[in-house]
Simulated scan of single mutants.
Amino acid sequence: MSTAATIAKVLSTPAADALIERLREKHGPVLFHQSGGCCDGSAPMCYPQGDFIVGDGDMKLGEIAGASFYMSRAQYEYWKHTQLIIDVVEGRGGMFSLDNGEGQRFLTRSRLFTDDEIERLQEAGRL
């Protein structure tokens, strides 16, 4: 049985980890922000760490492959019962994301937390 501290709000697949490492080799440290649906839909956007300013309205969900992953607090209210799984598929990345032009793009998959996981996250003040 997992503890609240071990329940990840965001995970990544091995394919996503490989693309993150490739982008890090080209651009240095990177971070992610889950897009809220404007220009690039709801894609996870990857940026050079110094090029995206995390605001007071953003919260850190965790890290994937050593890269911080953020989402707006308002959007999190809709997604808080969901674990995000960042994967990679063939295609073109978001126009502002580093995966654009790589032949692969990041994709957010998700699953609902179990009742037990929700209870543990609530007890720990993480939900």
Rank of each mutant, 00 (worst) to 15 (best):
S2R: 10
T3N: 08
A4D: 04
A4H: 06
A5H: 05
T6P: 00
I7D: 03
I7A: 04
A8Y: 00
L11F: 00
L11C: 11
T13D: 01
A18H: 04
A18E: 11
A18K: 11
A18M: 00
L19D: 02
I20F: 10
R22Q: 13
E25M: 13
H27Q: 02
P29A: 14
V30T: 13
G36N: 07
G37L: 12
G37V: 15
G41C: 08
G41D: 10
S42R: 10
M45F: 07
C46H: 00
P48C: 10
Q49A: 15
D51I: 07
F52K: 14
I53W: 02
D56T: 09
G57M: 04
D58P: 01
L61E: 04
I64V: 15
I64L: 06
G66S: 05
F69W: 08
F69I: 09
Y70A: 08
S72G: 14
A74K: 11
E77L: 15
Y78C: 11
W79M: 15
W79S: 14
K80P: 05
H81M: 06
Q83P: 00
V88S: 05
V89N: 01
E90L: 14
R92F: 03
G93N: 01
G94L: 08
L98V: 05
D99I: 04
G101L: 05
E102Q: 15
E102K: 09
Q104R: 13
R105F: 05
L107Q: 12
L107Y: 04
T108W: 00
R111C: 01
L112M: 13
E117C: 09
E123D: 13
